[in-house]
Design a protein around this nucleic acid. Structure first.
Length: 153
DNA sequence: GCCAACGTTGGC
DNA sequence: GCCAACGTTGGC
């Protein structure tokens, strides 16, 4: 899951109540489908910092609540308010709750990710890969944890 | 700041 | 339903 650290960083997640946050504001249908249909409680999450000097995997998290409607879409005060959804009275947007579960020695940068042949197919490394929520294989997840010397918290 | 890649919008 | 125009993302 991608986030711009200026907006919400892994450090912010560590500071959040229960080290948990609702992943609100995703307004892309493909990403929505993943959160609505694929996420299961207990799934591992690679927390990716995008648009940053140090782009890469900044920390490890876990799904603690599976897909449910994103309340920010219907909240006029929210930055993520969706006027169309509110007018129709139907909320098409979903989110999940994630909790920080492990720290890394340091951000595993894109260079480090690219240096691993086994990660060559990782979606986030593909050119033009803008999707903010992406599937990751168990093998990729474990390898990133290893590269970053993940420590449970 | 540039720009390629991609998603969305809207005229037709 | 096509596709040009536009907006956004995000690496570099």
């Amino acid at each position: 899951m991608k986030s711009e650290p200026d907006v919400f960083s892994f450090e912010d997640l560590l500071k959040a109540a229960g080290r948990t946050t609702s992943w609100e504001g995703v307004r892309n249908y493909q990403a929505r489908n993943f959160m609505r249909d694929e996420f299961r409680v207990g799934d591992g999450v690679l927390f990716y910092h995008s648009n940053s000097e140090e782009a890469g995997i900044a920390g490890i998290a876990e799904v603690v609540k599976a897909g449910y409607p994103d309340p920010s879409a219907l909240d006029p005060k929210s930055h993520y308010y969706d006027e169309n959804a509110a007018k129709k009275g139907e909320n098409p947007w979903f989110l999940v709750d994630v909790k920080a579960t492990a720290k890394l020695r340091a951000t595993v940068t894109r260079d480090e990710l690219r240096a691993e042949k086994k990660l060559a197919k990782m979606m986030v490394l593909q050119k033009g890969s803008r999707l903010s929520v992406q599937p990751v294989t168990a093998e990729e997840f474990e390898l990133v944890c290893k590269l970053g010397a993940a420590r449970k918290i």
